[in-house]
Simulated scan of single mutants.
Amino acid sequence: MVWAMSKSETILLVDDQPENISIMIEALHSLYTLLAATDGATALERVAGDPRPDLVLLDVMMPGMSGHEVCREIKGDPVTRDIPVIFVTSLDAPDDEARGLRIGASDYITKPISPPVVQARVRAHLDLKRAREQLQSQNTALEERVRERTAEVVQAQKERVESLKHFADAMAHQIRNPVMSIGGIAGLLLRKTPEDSPLATYAEAVREDSLRLESLVGVISEYVSLSAEPFREVQINGLVESALNKARGFADSSGQDLAVESGLQPALVKVDERIMVTAMAEIIINAMEFAGEERASLTIRGGVGMFGDELAEAGLSGSAGRRYGVRISDAGPGIDREVLPYVTDPFYTTKAQGAGMGLTKVKRVICDEHGGTLLIESPAASSENLSRPGTSVTFDLPLA
Rank of each mutant, 00 (worst) to 15 (best):
W3G: 04
M5H: 06
S6K: 09
T10V: 12
E19Q: 15
E19V: 15
N20L: 03
E26N: 10
L28C: 03
L31Q: 13
L34N: 09
L35I: 12
T42K: 11
A43T: 14
A48M: 10
P53F: 06
D54T: 00
L55R: 04
L55W: 01
E69H: 10
E73Y: 10
I74C: 06
I74N: 07
G76T: 04
G76L: 07
I86Q: 06
F87S: 03
D92G: 15
D96Q: 10
E97K: 11
E97D: 02
G100T: 06
S106V: 04
S106R: 10
D107P: 07
Y108D: 10
P115L: 08
V118R: 02
A120T: 08
A120G: 03
R121N: 00
K129S: 12
R130L: 00
R132S: 05
E133C: 01
N139H: 09
L142I: 12
E143T: 13
E144L: 06
R149P: 04
R149K: 07
V153P: 00
V154S: 05
A156G: 11
K158F: 12
E159P: 02
V161N: 13
M171C: 08
A172S: 14
A172W: 15
H173L: 11
Q174H: 09
S181L: 12
G184Q: 13
L188E: 14
L188H: 09
R191P: 08
K192T: 13
S197N: 15
R207W: 07
R207Q: 15
E214V: 15
L216F: 15
I220R: 04
I220L: 12
S221A: 15
V224P: 00
S225E: 13
E229G: 07
Q235F: 01
N237Y: 03
N237C: 06
N237F: 02
L239Y: 11
S242Q: 12
S242P: 00
G249A: 04
F250W: 15
A251K: 07
D252T: 09
G255K: 02
D257S: 09
D257M: 01
G263H: 09
L264Q: 02
L268W: 04
K270P: 02
M276C: 10
M276Y: 08
T278V: 06
A281Y: 06
E282V: 09
I284S: 05
N286Y: 11
G292C: 00
E293S: 10
A296K: 04
S297C: 02
S297D: 11
T299Q: 11
G305M: 03
M306G: 00
M306H: 03
A312L: 11
A312S: 07
S317Y: 07
S319N: 07
A320C: 02
A320D: 01
R323H: 01
Y324L: 04
R327T: 00
R327S: 08
I328L: 10
S329V: 05
G332E: 04
I335D: 05
R337Q: 14
Y342P: 02
D345F: 12
T349R: 12
T350L: 11
A352R: 11
G354N: 06
A355V: 15
A355D: 12
A355C: 08
K361G: 10
V362P: 06
V365G: 05
I366M: 06
D368R: 09
D368I: 05
L374I: 02
L374Q: 08
I376G: 01
P379K: 01
A380C: 05
L386P: 05
S387N: 12
R388C: 00
P389S: 11
P398Q: 09
